[in-house]
Simulated scan of single mutants.
Amino acid sequence: MLRKLLSRAKISKLGLRTPQPAPGRHGVAIAAIVRNEARYIEEWARFHHAVGVRHFVIYDDASTDATRDILRDVLAPEALTIIPWAQRLSDIRLGREIHNQVLAYAHAAGNFGSEFRWMAFVDVDEFLVPTASNSLVQSLEPLGDIPNVSLPWHMFGFSGHETAPDGGVLANYLMRVRDPMSDAPGIRAFKMLVDPCRLTAVRVHSMESDASSETWNDAGVKATLEAREKPGFYSTQAVQLNHYYTRSKADLEAKIARGPNLVAKTDQYRRKVMRTVNSIEAETVEDLRARDLARRLGLID
């Protein structure tokens, strides 16, 4: 019975021996796992490059479209590393699947982290929007030497679109859930910016620095990973994390059809996604912050 229960549980947390910081390390890197993102990855890459991301470590999960070619067209060779990442690994003894996304994040930090002050672990439907300036580096500078920042999701829904509109994500998806710290299903979650040279444990939504569960918001307020769930932790003083969860209704169906990163979760995936969608759409507010920044940067009209 115990073996059967364990086989249903994924290995979703990995320990990490931190890399030694390289002399003169600086800037922000993004690590992301992608699959067939040709429609949207150009806008995502151009935006993050424009706000100051120095390097992109892209883990390609067997894309069959032009995802890789678009990235190579948009980003200079010194700003881009693409790694094939189609494997699915498991612990043979227990039959437990190793979370492929967590494995990618640990690989990125361990192999590339020594060159950067910050490393972000996000998806192509997530945008890091600096709020204190037009630059991520400048917005983060007042935080000093803290080892990590927890950024709450700002969940965007359909914004009335049945199919993907012309003009990209930032110009067209302007309606998000009113309360990013809501306890409605699927709403309150975080992604993290970390100092990769102090990273000691990796999960998708929660990481540990210096073998501690302490984390900070982007205003420099410290809490535990558990306490960050409280409304008082919320801040967008330096960076806002926009998660364009659905895009259009047609995009959502395509997302569900692609399925989750974990094979074991396939049957539950549609139900989970639709619970989150219903939570987003229940009460929305207009949010123009990312669109207006993209306009200032000359990325959209």
Rank of each mutant, 00 (worst) to 15 (best):
N36C: 12
A38E: 15
A38P: 09
R39C: 10
R39E: 14
R39Y: 10
Y40C: 10
Y40M: 11
Y40P: 06
Y40N: 15
Y40R: 12
I41G: 03
I41H: 06
E42F: 07
E43R: 07
W44K: 05
W44P: 04
R46D: 06
R46W: 07
H48D: 09
H48V: 02
H49D: 14
H49C: 07
V51H: 05
V51P: 02
V51D: 06
R54G: 00
H55N: 01
H55R: 10
F56A: 03
V57G: 00
V57L: 10
V57M: 01
I58L: 05
I58R: 00
Y59V: 04
Y59L: 01
Y59P: 00
D61F: 02
A62F: 06
S63T: 00
S63C: 03
D65E: 08
D65K: 02
D65T: 04
A66L: 07
A66E: 15
A66F: 02
T67A: 04
T67H: 00
T67R: 03
T67Y: 01
D69L: 11
I70K: 03
L71W: 04
R72C: 11
D73S: 14
D73L: 07
V74T: 11
L75G: 02
L75K: 00
A76P: 08
P77A: 09
P77W: 07
E78L: 03
A79Y: 04
L80P: 05
T81C: 08
T81S: 15
T81L: 10
I82H: 05
I82L: 09
I83F: 05
I83R: 13
P84R: 05
P84G: 04
P84H: 06
P84V: 08
P84E: 12
W85V: 02
A86F: 02
A86M: 08
Q87F: 14
Q87M: 12
R88G: 11
L89T: 12
L89F: 11
S90R: 15
S90V: 10
D91L: 15
D91I: 14
D91W: 12
D91A: 13
I92G: 11
I92N: 11
I92S: 15
R93Y: 13
R93N: 14
L94V: 04
L94G: 09
G95C: 12
G95S: 09
